Simulated scan of single mutants.
Amino acid sequence: MHKLLARAFTLLMALAFAQTLAAAELGEDGLHKEEWFAMTFRDIAEDIAQAKGEGKRLAITFEQRGCIYCKEMHENILSDPEVRDYIRENFMVVQYNMFGDEEVTDLDGEALTEKTAARKWGYVFTPTIVFLPEEAPEGKTVAEAAVATMPGAFGKWTFLNMFRWVKEKGYEREEHFQQYHARIINELRAAGRLGDGE
Score class of each variant (00 low, 15 high):
I184T: 11
L107A: 02
H181N: 15
E63M: 09
A145W: 06
A153R: 14
G30D: 10
A24I: 07
P151G: 10
G197P: 03
K71L: 14
G100C: 00
E54I: 02
R193H: 08
Y180M: 02
H181Y: 12
E135K: 14
K71Y: 08
V93I: 04
Q19V: 07
I48H: 02
N161H: 14
T126I: 03
D85H: 09
V142N: 06
D29P: 00
G122I: 03
T128S: 09
G152T: 05
V166N: 05
V130P: 05
Q64P: 02
G66R: 11
F99G: 05
T113I: 03
G139H: 01
T149L: 10
K56I: 03
D106V: 00
W36L: 04
K169A: 12
Y171A: 01
C70N: 04
M162V: 04
A23I: 05
G53T: 02
A6K: 15
M162C: 04
A38G: 00
A190S: 12
F177P: 05
G152R: 08
L21I: 09
H2Q: 11
F17T: 13
Y86H: 09
L26Y: 06
W36I: 04
R183H: 11
E138L: 11
E198S: 13
G100L: 00
A148F: 15
R173I: 05
E144I: 07
E174Q: 12
T113W: 05
R173G: 15
M1F: 12
R189D: 00
G122S: 02
E82R: 13
D29M: 07
D47T: 03
Y180C: 01
L5I: 12
G30S: 11
Y171E: 00
R183I: 04
A145T: 01
